[in-house]
Design a protein around this nucleic acid. Structure first.
Length: 273
DNA sequence: AGCGGGACCTGTGGGC
DNA sequence: TGCCCACAGGTCCCGC
């Protein structure tokens, strides 16, 4: 599910519900949904949630103490705030009891159908030591074309490089296909073969697609919901993702669906070179 | 080095 | 209607 725009939307919708709430209880229902390097979830008890932010596809809840909660939602993870008496659902992997500054109570649920997602309760040094974090590439909305050019190297397909979180953080299958279409670049191009103006067009396209999706609260194909349980709308703006066999919105020729690095990939062979 | 395939999981949708 | 297979937003690991 959640790529950068979806995680950004979760962060934005989550924060108003949980800011300055104290964690008063934790209920871990599936041990494997916790990163093996994590502190015990009880480390969050007594902490006041101070900030919510995003890095790549990671959701980070910072507290007034040294412990923080880092979540990777992977394919089907959700973070949802519900009333205090809400019971865990079939796919709830962990939930937290919260006490607000006005003494109101609520619960923060981490639900995840496919159970690929993970929570990592950690300190800042533990986060820095986590290889996935340490190796994470730049934020696409903050990087320059020069930085992107430096990182797009080698002979692997361009799309595969975009999906590599070490190259650029936060892009997944949807936004890779959509960005490549916007830049009129073939997903099969060698990553290191782009001319300077092509790299610039690619970065502009990535940023435009991500910004537009964030403005529409992300894409909901089936599972994704924000912290209020609402779906996004960007799926209605897909140009190529999931559109294999349909006409290209640009030229009308048939969009081609292939497998690239094990991932479904849709593009227009006529428009994307 | 790089690639493909499998593993991790559950649910859904299409074809027969 | 029901069964079976393919496939799904991500990442890691293994063997070739």
């Amino acid at each position: 599910m959640p790529e950068l725009p979806e995680v950004e939307t979760v962060v934005r919708t989550l924060l108003p519900h949980i800011k300055d709430n104290f964690v008063t209880g934790v209920h871990l229902l599936r041990l494997r949904s916790l990163n093996p390097a994590s502190l015990p979830p009880e480390a969050l008890i007594g902490c006041r949630i101070a900030q919510a932010r995003r890095r790549g596809k990671l959701l980070i809840l910072e507290t007034d103490k040294s412990a923080m909660l880092v979540a990777h939602l992977r394919m089907t993870g959700r973070m949802l705030v519900k009333p205090e008496n809400s019971e865990p659902g079939k796919h709830t992997r962990c939930f937290f009891d919260l006490l607000g500054p006005d003494k109101s109570q609520s619960r923060l649920f981490f639900d995840d159908v496919r159970a690929f997602g993970q929570l990592f309760i950690c300190t800042a040094p533990m986060l820095e030591a986590w290889p996935f974090w340490r190796d994470l590439g730049p934020e696409p909305l903050e990087m320059t074309a020069g930085e992107l050019a430096q990182r797009l190297t080698g002979t692997r397909p361009l799309k595969q490089a975009l999906l590599d979180q070490k190259v650029i953080a936060g892009i997944g299958n949807i936004y890779a296909d959509e960005s490549l279409f916007g830049a009129r670049l073939s997903p099969e191009r060698e990553a290191g073969s782009l001319a300077a103006e092509e790299t610039e067009a690619l970065l502009r396209s990535i940023q435009a697609v991500l910004r537009l999706s964030i403005s529409q609260c992300g894409s909901s194909i089936r599972d994704y919901r924000d912290a209020d349980g609402n779906a996004g709308a960007f799926q209605n703006s897909f140009q190529v993702y999931g559109q294999g066999g349909r006409p290209c919105p640009q030229c009308g020729q048939e969009l081609r669906k292939i497998r690239l690095g094990g991932r479904a990939t849709v593009f227009c062979p006529h428009c994307q070179k």
